[in-house]
Nucleic acid binder design. Structure first.
Length: 171
DNA sequence: CCCTGATTCGC
DNA sequence: GCGAATCAGG
């Protein structure tokens, strides 16, 4: 896939709309999120809004000779996620840690483009996310490539299996 | 684990 | 110019 004018234009549009690189890659098709990010950088259009404030990077020298990986890996962390999908929240409280979760910001997933497959067209590797009314004529399935781990493509998998945690008691 | 963007560098 | 590999972070 090469970067045609249309594709670059779409990239610009989606990026400015705040879509993530992987989502844009899915929309464009045929490219990885890395490709998208790389292109974004080359186009000199990064940092829209204020999503990720990454200070300075650096560090990548001499890769290929001395292996310097490993180090302390993970440490079984059992954390109860209570975060909201917001990225730029500040609001600091200094006392009285009364827990409060506002709304559930789910559904911010941008689904690529459904292939509108009929039931008989589904295979083990097609997303089985249904679109529309099963009793209707135009009922169809997403049909995009499904992950090995489930019946849906990764975008529909997100909306399908979201509410895992979040059920803390208020004292 | 999942994900995000950022950077480097061989092609 | 391109993008995989890697890194750093949530």
């Amino acid at each position: 896939m090469n970067w045609t004018d249309e594709r670059v234009e779409l990239l610009r549009k989606l990026w400015s709309e705040g879509l993530s690189a992987s989502q844009i890659a899915a929309q464009l098709g045929g490219v990885s999120r890395n490709a998208v990010i790389g292109k974004v950088h080359r186009l000199k259009l990064s940092g829209r809004g204020r999503a990720t404030a990454t200070p300075a990077r650096q560090k990548k020298t001499t890769q290929g000779s001395t292996v310097q990986k490993s180090v302390a890996r993970a440490a079984s962390t059992r954390h109860v996620t209570t975060s909201i999908g917001a990225t730029a929240l500040q609001t600091q409280f200094d006392a009285e840690p009364v827990a409060r979760h506002y709304i559930r910001p789910v559904e911010n997933v941008v689904v690529p483009i459904s292939r509108h497959l009929q039931l008989v067209e589904l295979t083990e590797r097609t997303c089985k996310w249904p679109n529309g009314d099963p009793l209707s004529e135009d009922f169809n399935f997403c049909g995009n490539e499904a992950a090995e781990t489930g019946p849906y493509c990764k975008y529909h998998a997100r909306v399908a299996f979201q509410p895992a945690a979040e059920r803390r008691r208020n004292r």
